[in-house]
Nucleic acid binder design. Structure first.
Lengths: 215, 215
DNA sequence: CCCAAAACCTGAACGCAGTACAAGTTCTTA
DNA sequence: TAAGAACTTGTACTGCGTTCAGGTTTTGGG
């Protein structure tokens, strides 16, 4: 959103043809509010910026702000609607011909890729304000339902415990990679880390290498 | 706190001898506020109870409420100071002679045991108000630092990624067991579930049984 | 037993998040 | 181009969380 200039007048490919004026304006407003918010928060810190500040700076009323974002934290952590739609498309059209765990790993890598642009900013905000860790997890909860459906589609025995376990454990791997990642590092480092974490969880954490007495 | 009557005048063992009057009153106030809050929330639902209601019903001022609990959600999810202290004692005095993963599993089982009394209530509140799932995770964050230290003590190579991964993945197992547990079931069901989940995570979730194409 | 210091409780006032609603404005569609 | 749907806005309200000055209770030393 900073480097590439497709924020306002540069619609990408055929999307603007499909979307009406109304929908385009909405997306534009969403992005204006978000980027304004991230800028102010980066400058002053999360607590020192009020919703009123953000709304005013974005040229919109406080009421409108809350029609776009349910909470103040959401403006920092919600996913771009278009990026989310793209990722959902990938998940929905995913073929079932690969083993579950590697395929699941790729979905997380895709997600990190989709989020690439603003992930460093989010990370920096979190570093400055650790109390928001919960909100960061809430970001994951946005796509958790999609992943749950995807997983349960592939565990036909209907084992709810197993399905939830696969979801939560894989997400733990993803979150761990995010936690340890330094936003100054390039994205590839994060992606490798995601793969590593997911692989380790998949391979089993009780493996001999981690148990001192059985090494 | 309901069945056994050690709330007020029946101090258990030597604890009251160690604690001064001041400290004893504090703990008592803490428990009065908490139980009052849980009662009201169970009756009316989380959103329909204000902090003012709870404070009034507990015979304490609103300001005092916030001196005991940082937020309204905390009154439903914070851990009993004494129970927390007992668990911390167990963690600190734990011997290092067993393999990591089974020992870690036991710590989670211990935790569930310590929380046994109010876990069903908490679970019911969450069922009625799914929006509080985040707060439930915040409960885990209370003892996350202790677990982190415990784990890193046993991963001497100082691998931060591995340490965090062990923490997050094991916690995912614990949370999964909690999620799937029905509060109407006895505690043993939960404890078994915790053990099962942790064991599966430890054994590796990418095992053949879960991968359709390699089965 | 008494007195000072410390810890605690309280009421009042404040800022801000989030909601509800009625009135106005802009886009759509027929 | 007109009816209607969708969006925006100002206003008013509830309730969370903080601050602070002043009163009360506990503690510990003399």
């Amino acid at each position: 959103m900073a480097r590439t200039g497709h924020t306002a007048g540069t619609p990408r490919c055929s999307i603007s043809a499909v979307m009406g004026l109304r929908e385009r304006k909405k997306l534009e407003a969403w992005r204006t509010i978000r980027s304004t918010a991230l800028r102010l928060i980066s400058e002053r810190g999360f607590d020192a910026v009020s919703v009123e500040d953000i709304a005013a700076e974005a040229g919109v009323s406080r009421t409108t702000f809350f029609s776009y974002f349910p909470t103040k934290e959401a403006v920092a952590f919600d996913l771009d609607p278009q990026a989310l739609a793209e990722w959902r498309e990938r998940v929905a059209t995913d073929t079932d011909d690969r083993p579950l765990w590697p395929a699941l790993t790729d979905l997380y890598v895709d997600m990190a890729t989709v989020l690439a642009e603003w992930l460093p900013v989010q990370k920096r905000v979190l570093q400055q304000h650790p109390g928001l860790t919960q909100s960061a997890r809430a970001t994951c909860d946005t796509f958790a339902p999609d992943l749950y459906r995807w997983i349960s589609r592939r565990t036909p025995d209907g084992d709810r415990l197993l399905t939830s376990l696969l979801l939560n454990a894989s997400m733990a791997g993803y979150i761990t990679a995010l936690e340890v990642w330094d936003p100054a590092d390039p994205l590839d480092v994060l992606l490798d880390s995601v793969r590593t974490c997911l692989h380790r969880v998949g391979a089993g954490l009780a493996a001999p290498e981690h148990s001192p007495s059985t090494a």
